[in-house]
Each structure stands twice: as structure tokens, then as C-alpha cells.
């Protein structure tokens, strides 16, 4: 369940069952045409690449840390209780001493609690970086996981914490349906799902809808590369009461412009207009949801 903070500006997650549907294209162009200052959060912390397009001149970075145990060798009796409790091999007891593996630690604090000799303390350990920059009207908040770290969700939560409450935010989610996606969606009020009218697109959209509904989040759909609908995508959306907020034509120019690292909304005015309309419709949708809940 998403706790709605009263007075906080709307947060819209852009998601899709898998990569390559145009999620990043939609996030960037929507942000560019938002009509007001907006935040764009790169929650794909394993592969953040929004700044390849935004090219912010200056990024201010802050480390994301997690509390990691530290063993005082003088007090450790080698009893093995910590290693036995740890589910993630973050701490291993060898009979004579305990070794900590920060990259596997989830920061649950169990080893500190279970140690009978008080040999374990906790210290912050860097697991990622949050970078904040500005590109025209867009405030970019990018999360980046340290290489080799397995705790993705805390970095995504740190991205959410860096967002300002007084400005709407677009959250570019990682692909898939696994826990990094749910960590991203848990900070959102609305989910915009990007798909295309292909068998792969429909199949993956169904997975993404199921994920959003597991979290009780309302969703809408952007259909990318919309052409002849042979798979019944529109029918599916209608049957599931999913509003289709934008259909982008299957236009090779979009692929060409995006491949250069440019935004189609900036280059081609007709697309600029489409994304402006998408922003308007989204605001109405979010208001509807907020009204329904109030």
C-alpha cells in the first residue's frame, strides 16, 4: 500500500514488463514537455542512462550508505551465532573469527542482536550514489549502484528520499517485475505502462499490470509503435479498464532521433504536442485518483 502524503506533488512511475518498449523515450519526452518544472528520477540504478540524453552540466553526488557490521576481533569468541543467523552469507564465522562480506549484507542487524559477547558494531558502508542535476526544466535525480553490491532496493529508496515534495516527479523504473521494480513503484501514486501492439508487448504488459495491481496502484497505458493492432491490445486495455493515454505511431524517425541521443519532442513539433497532451491527461488521471481516495 502506498501511503499518500498530503500536500506532496504527484509521482508517476513509468514502467514496462521488459526493456526496449520505449520507457526511457516516454520518460524523457514527457519530462521535457511537462509544462512546468518537473523531477525525473532514474530508478534503473543498475544501468542508469537518462543523463546520456539530458547531459546535465553539473551533477551533485551524495553517497548512499547502509549499516554494515564490524567485528571486534578481541571480543569475538568464534561461537558462530552470527553466521548461523545470517541468511545472506554477509557474515561468516570460521570457528575462531568472523568475516564480514559487505556486498552480501542486507543490513538486517540480526548479527549484532544475536552476538552474545557484544563483539559486533555497525558502520555505514557505501552501496551507491545519488546524483542530482538540472537540464532546462528537468531536475534529474539519478541512482547508481556500486558495482558488486546486491542491495538494489535501498538505493532506489534513497532516490525517492532525494525527491522534493513541492515538484511533481516522473520515476523511470527498471525493466521487469522483480523487486527493484516494486521498490520503484512503492514510491509512486500512478503507474504509466509503456507497451507496443505485438505479442511480446501484450504478454509483458499483462505481467506489468499484475505487478501494479499487487501494489494497489492505478495505471494507464502508452502504446508505442502503434500500428495495426493484431493482438487485441486495445480490447485488452478496455476490458481491464486501463486508459490509453497516448498512442505513438510506428515512425522510424523516432528510432533515428532517439538513437542520436536527442528528444523527439524537441526535434519534431507534432510529437512535442503529443507529449504535452500526455502530461495534461496524466494530471487529470492523478487528480481523479486523488479525488477517488479523498
Amino acid at each position: 500500500m502506498v501511503a499518500k502524503t498530503h500536500g506532496r506533488a504527484a509521482r508517476i512511475a513509468i514502467a514496462s514488463g521488459k526493456g526496449g518498449t520505449g520507457k526511457t523515450t516516454v520518460s524523457l519526452n514527457l519530462a521535457a514537455m511537462f509544462g512546468a518544472p518537473v523531477q525525473l528520477a532514474d530508478c534503473d540504478v543498475e544501468e542508469p542512462n537518462l543523463n546520456l540524453f539530458l547531459r546535465c552540466e553539473q551533477l551533485t553526488s551524495t553517497p548512499v550508505t547502509m549499516l554494515i557490521p564490524e567485528v571486534d576481533a578481541n571480543r569475538c569468541t568464534g561461537c558462530g551465532a552470527c553466521g548461523e543467523l545470517c541468511q545472506f552469507r554477509g557474515i561468516v564465522s570460521l570457528g575462531t573469527r568472523a568475516l564480514v562480506f559487505p556486498e552480501l549484507c542486507h543490513g538486517c542487524g540480526g548479527c549484532i542482536r544475536v552476538c552474545p559477547s557484544g563483539a559486533i558494531s555497525e558502520n555505514p558502508h557505501q552501496i551507491g550514489t545519488i546524483s542530482v542535476g538540472q537540464s532546462r526544466t528537468i531536475r534529474l535525480v539519478e541512482g547508481r549502484l556500486e558495482v558488486g553490491v546486491s542491495s538494489v532496493s535501498p538505493v532506489i529508496r534513497a532516490v525517492h528520499q532525494q525527491l522534493r515534495d513541492d515538484m511533481p516527479a516522473i520515476l523511470d523504473a527498471p525493466p521487469g517485475t522483480s523487486c527493484p521494480v516494486t521498490a520503484t513503484l512503492l514510491g509512486a501514486d500512478y503507474v504509466l505502462l509503456v507497451t507496443d501492439p505485438t505479442p511480446f508487448g501484450l504478454h509483458d504488459l499483462k505481467l506489468a499490470v499484475a505487478t501494479a495491481r499487487t501494489l494497489n496502484l492505478p495505471c494507464g497505458v502508452v502504446i508505442n509503435r502503434a500500428g495495426e493492432d493484431q493482438v487485441g491490445l486495445y480490447q485488452y486495455c478496455q476490458a481491464e479498464a486501463l486508459p490509453v493515454l497516448l498512442s505513438l505511431p510506428d515512425d522510424r524517425q523516432i528510432a533515428e532521433i532517439t538513437s542520436r541521443g536527442d528528444l523527439v519532442a524537441h526535434v519534431l513539433p507534432e510529437y512535442g504536442l503529443m507529449f504535452t497532451e500526455l502530461a495534461d491527461k496524466l494530471q487529470q488521471e492523478v487528480l481523479k485518483v486523488a479525488g477517488g481516495r479523498a
Partner: peptide, 11 residues
């Protein structure tokens, strides 16, 4: 969804 399976509450 939020449970990471650390087992601390169990213990």
C-alpha cells in the same frame, strides 16, 4: 513484498 527473508523476527 517488503520482507527480505532475513529471519531476525523469527529468531
Amino acid at each position: 513484498v517488503a520482507c527480505e527473508g532475513c529471519g531476525v523476527c523469527v529468531r
